[in-house]
Amino acid sequence: MKKVYIAGPEVFFPDGADIIARKGILARQYGFEANSFESGDFPAEKFAFGMAISKANEEVMRGSDFVLANMTPFRGVSADVGTAYEIGFMCALGKDAFAYTNDPRYYDVRLTQDYYAGQVGPAADGMVRGHSDGWMVEDHAMVDNLMLDGGIIARGGLVVRAPAGATLPWSDLSVFELALKAARDWYDKAS
Rank of each mutant, 00 (worst) to 15 (best):
A123D: 15
R75T: 00
Q113G: 00
F98Q: 06
A79L: 11
Y5N: 03
P169T: 07
L93W: 02
V109W: 12
Y100W: 11
E33G: 07
A164D: 14
G156P: 04
A21G: 02
M90E: 04
S78G: 06
V11P: 04
M61T: 01
E138W: 06
E86V: 01
A97W: 03
T112D: 09
A183G: 10
A84I: 07
G126M: 06
D188A: 14
E38S: 12
A99E: 00
P9S: 11
Y187R: 15
V4E: 06
T83F: 01
A141F: 08
T72A: 05
A99K: 05
A27C: 12
A166G: 02
A183C: 10
Y116W: 13
A48N: 08
D108P: 00
G16T: 09
F49L: 12
H131G: 05
A52Q: 08
A164S: 11
P122R: 08
M61V: 01
A56S: 15
N70C: 10
A69R: 04
A56R: 15
Y100P: 05
G76S: 10
Y106I: 05
D185M: 13
G76W: 09
S36K: 13
Y107P: 02
L93D: 00
L111Q: 15
S78N: 13
G126D: 07
F37I: 05
D185Y: 10
K2W: 13
Y107W: 11
D133W: 01
A79P: 10
K189P: 00
L158S: 12
H140Q: 08
T167M: 14
L146S: 09
G121I: 06
R75A: 02
A56P: 12
A44S: 10
L173K: 06
V67E: 06
G165W: 02
L26H: 01
Q119A: 12
G24N: 07
A117T: 04
F47K: 10
D125H: 09
V81H: 12
R184L: 11
N102G: 12
Q113K: 13
M90A: 03
L93S: 00
T112I: 05
A162T: 09
V128T: 15
A141W: 07
Y100F: 14
F13G: 02
D65P: 03
A124W: 02
G118M: 08
A34G: 04
F42N: 09
T101C: 06
F47M: 12
V175Q: 10
S174C: 09
L68N: 07
D114Y: 08
I6W: 04
M136H: 13
S171T: 13
A34F: 14
L173A: 09
G150T: 06
M142R: 13
F42S: 09
T167W: 02
P43R: 05
D133A: 08
I6G: 05
M127V: 02
M136W: 09
T83N: 07
M51T: 10
F37A: 12
V160A: 08
V4G: 03
A69S: 03
S171V: 12
R110H: 08
K189I: 10
A123R: 00
A190K: 14
D18I: 03
D188L: 13
M1H: 06
S191Q: 09
K23S: 04
D188H: 06
S39K: 14
S132P: 00
G88I: 02
D185S: 14
V67H: 07
S39A: 13
